[in-house]
């Protein structure tokens, strides 16, 4: 059963503009079709149907106006006389001055502006300056001595030029060697050192595992993620460190009995 064009379009969730674009028709024409102001031209029917991916027969040739919608105002056509097209056609047109009476408008001279006072340095410029001085290992006093005037007396433009100079100096300066802090948690050398000493000494260690069991054996190898031990019966076992809770030498009083 045929349906209104606007219903079909809204079912497809596309705008009037999209439909017009897909069908290659003017938006205004689509709006007129939808409002029922005019019937769909048979030449356009196929294009609209294809744009909506429906059959031509699904489209009502003259749509019913959308309930509650204001009637669509028609745009004046090109051949409509101006008086008819004007909404206030009853008003006489304003008389135009004769062509010879056109006098050039007097140019209004703007008052000459006073020169702006110099702007103070931006806070970001000061921060940038401090950073550059730090990299150059200079103090504010050093810089003031170099330029021969206090920094507070420099305006935004002067500070900008100064920053440019300092940036060039920083670029030319040798890159300082970055000394990184020693971070124990970024290395695992302490445990590796302990295991290396235990392996070299042929120590036996007792390993406590997450499942509550324990393994005792001589350390014969280790890595970042595992430890290999030879048990008393000669069997070798590789323990994943993730399975371990702790380990220690079983002799003395440093065994698991120390754990409470």
């Amino acid at each position: 059963m045929a349906d209104n064009l606007w219903v079909l379009r809204e079912q497809k969730k596309i705008s009037v503009a999209t439909l017009a674009s897909r069908a290659g028709l003017p938006i205004g024409l689509i709006m007129e079709y939808e409002s029922g102001q005019r019937s769909i031209d048979p030449r356009h029917l196929n294009r609209i149907a294809r744009a909506l991916y429906i059959e031509e027969a699904d489209i009502k040739l003259r749509s019913d106006p959308r309930p509650g919608a204001a009637p669509l105002e028609r745009q004046p056509s090109r051949d409509t006389p101006r008086e008819m097209a004007r909404p206030y056609g009853d008003r006489p047109p304003m008389p135009r001055p004769p062509a010879g009476d056109v006098r050039p408008r007097e140019r209004q001279m703007r008052p000459r502006l006073e020169p702006r006072p110099p702007l103070p340095a931006r806070p970001s410029q000061i921060v940038h300056l401090e950073g550059l001085l730090k990299r150059l290992d200079l103090s504010m006093a050093d810089l003031e001595a170099q330029i021969g005037k206090p920094l507070s007396g420099l305006d935004r433009v002067a500070i900008s030029a100064l920053l440019k100079d300092l940036q060039a100096k920083v670029k030319d300066a040798p890159t300082p060697v970055r000394h990184r802090a020693y971070l124990p948690e970024s290395v695992d050398e302490f445990e590796a050192r302990y295991l290396a000493a235990a392996q070299a000494a042929g120590d036996h260690l007792r390993f406590i595992l997450f499942d509550g069991s324990s393994v005792e054996g001589q350390v014969i190898g280790y890595g970042p993620y595992s430890i290999t031990a030879r048990q008393a019966d000669g069997a070798e076992v590789t323990l994943n460190k993730l399975a371990l809770v702790s380990y220690t030498k079983p002799s003395g009083n440093a065994g698991p009995e120390q754990l409470q």
């Binding site: 302990y194 371990l244 809770v245 702790s246 380990y247 003395g252 009083n253 440093a254 120390q258 754990l259």
Partner: peptide
């Protein structure tokens, strides 16, 4: 204590 070390993961 006792000079022996407990290594805890």
């Amino acid at each position: 204590g006792g000079g022996l070390l407990l290594v805890v993961q």
